[in-house]
Design a protein around this nucleic acid. Structure first.
Lengths: 203, 203
DNA sequence: AATAAATATTGACCAATCGTCTAAAATATG
DNA sequence: CATATTTTAGACGATTGGTCAATATTTATT
């Protein structure tokens, strides 16, 4: 029934041409930067024809948006998974746990941080990125936060904006550690950041 | 003495080719977006040859950086000028005054806000932009803040990072009013934002 | 004022890049 | 096995980016 057909068949472990394009693009974007990466570069390195690229993506910027969304979404989801393993009651502390997790991961992987932040500033504000966020995430910091605010009767004028502000703070804190090439005392600064978050959320 | 030479002479009120390129680029960037504006577009609309563009700017991205820096710098300088007219003692209140001024101006000019924020997220983190900031501003929110912290013996772990965070908050607050097309109650949200700033700076 | 040196400007030119399109290959369906 | 549908390939025209030698303009020098 299942025959091998041609010898050319790659291991079909789900990494199809689309995935290969995404992986290759991420590699090249982080290595050489957006500007110095052409679509030809991407398809050559992914061993795919140019036409195939345009089958899946509109242009270079769409593939970037998708990448940023996937990478940052993955990071937040990992953080949420870790959060579930611990029992943390307070919403402020839950948010701080997540922020803390993400900061640590980003500081460990500066190329990822640079990519996420530099070209799109965390991508939170980009329509395309937000769409992918909403499509792909069953569980999300957004839902956790909104639910938490409701359940705990926390008095926030606009929870959504508050969450964005907090993530913006996360972004700026991380990015500062890259902006200055000298190592920034990010761990010293954390308690200070978390105070601010507690003040924003209350409780 | 002063002769007209050619009839082609434009009014030489300081707007040379460089300025014309900058103005035209800003117009096109905000009207059509970065991606749909080619250098050819810019030089055609500015009535300048292509080579002239490359005499002043490295590429499209450099002219964008310069524009963002100039526009945002101008905004902050206007805010500082207004601040000087009032007598505000407290550093928190001074910062809030400036933030308030800038927010109001940006909400009034959404295309400017969109340009500043979208492609570079306020530009604070961009090396090129920062360089221009430092070169062009005699008076700046940066200096005001650092001096204020010192003079008032305010205990901040890292004043520079704190200021960036505050500006990031300003940026995120403004940008939220664009993100959602419906009018966001930005004025309602202000007191809340300013509480946060007071908590960050203290006093 | 005439000449020389320095600087600014131009636009033709070529290489690189984009995005389209048609034909071929792979796969699914009956 | 024949036919329809989807996926892939890469050649192609159009656009864009960036260079460069020629030309125009300004500034300095005598």
């Amino acid at each position: 029934m299942i025959d091998m057909k041609k010898e050319k068949t790659e291991k079909t472990d789900g990494n199809d041409k689309e995935s290969r394009l995404l992986n290759t693009a991420f590699k090249l974007f982080t290595e050489k930067g957006m500007k110095d990466t052409s679509i030809q570069d991407i398809v050559d390195n992914a061993n795919v024809a140019k036409g195939t690229f345009y089958l899946y993506f509109k242009d270079k910027y769409e593939i970037r948006d998708i990448l940023i969304a996937k990478k940052s979404n993955k990071l937040f989801n990992e953080a949420l998974k870790e959060l579930r393993k611990n029992y943390i009651e307070n919403l402020s502390d839950q948010v701080i746990f997540i922020i803390n997790y993400v900061i640590d991961e980003l500081v460990k992987a500066p190329t990822l941080l640079k990519f996420i932040s530099k070209d799109l500033s965390w991508g939170i504000y980009n329509k395309n990125v937000r769409k992918i966020y909403e499509e792909t995430s069953e569980d999300s910091i957004y839902k956790l936060f909104i639910k938490g605010v409701e359940e705990n009767h926390i008095d926030l004028k606009n929870p959504e904006v508050t969450l964005f502000m907090i993530i913006e703070l996360l972004s700026s804190t991380c990015f500062n550690s890259i902006l200055y090439n000298e190592p920034l005392p990010i761990n010293e600064f954390k308690p200070y950041l978390y105070d601010t978050i507690r003040n924003m959320i209350g409780k």
